[in-house]
Design a protein around this nucleic acid. Structure first.
Lengths: 108, 108
DNA sequence: TATAAACGCAACCACTCGGTTTCGCAAGTA
DNA sequence: TACTTGCGAAACCGAGTGGTTGCGTTTATA
């Protein structure tokens, strides 16, 4: 299934799972220990993250290690890009205000 | 209500609304014209965006202009920050590979 | 070989979500 | 004043979400 990555990171549990796995690859059981809900519930979250390529998996014996795939999360960063302009705009405005303040100070 | 900003941008219509308003402040009616759904549906989306401070409103007569608030979207950028490390890691690895390729070429 | 562990999958359920229709209210306008 | 316009709020509805329990399969272990 082709999932929406924004919908995938909408859930706070899934965001935490991503953070945990990004710092160190983990199995579903070791992940589930960190959360109040059941292993199956965590597995469902993992499945969603897999479905939009935010995670890769590697089977080792009867365990499955999930690891973070940094490529896909870039899409979010890319979307944010269009708004960065507004941040710098605000900075520019602040710059002007500060410059004027200094100007006035010097003129006084 | 204190909404989750990630849940707010999970919906593709809301993301489009944000993009539109970021480029130019708009009224609910002018926004709704851009979408297949009704004005009330759009108003619901706007309400959610307002509830997590992604939009500000200004009433002018009987019209309400919504405008983009750049501050709040930074929270998403902040969350992404923890993963940027992985992108540069990948670049470092690529660098090593390329360096080795060049080394081998030179030694040949 | 019998048992335990690690896991995915399916069925079920209460709740949320995104949409519509209907309504009421305030602000312009004839 | 009567009518239209722009809007939010409420009620309702089908679809989706996040959780649980139960089950089957594969792999390790006694």
């Amino acid at each position: 299934m082709n999932r929406d990555i924004f919908q995938a990171i909408a859930d706070p549990t899934r965001r935490e799972i991503l953070s945990l796995i990004a710092s160190k690859r983990m199995t579903p059981n070791s992940l589930a220990e960190k959360f109040p809900s059941s292993r199956q519930a965590i597995s469902k979250h993992i499945k969603i993250l897999i479905e939009c390529d935010l995670l890769d998996q590697e089977k080792v014996g009867r365990e499955i290690y999930y690891e973070f795939n940094p490529e896909k999360i870039k899409e979010v960063d890319k979307w944010i890009e269009q708004f960065r302009k507004h941040w710098s705009d605000k900075f520019d405005q602040l710059d002007k205000v500060l410059n004027n303040l200094n100007k006035n100070k010097n003129e006084r």
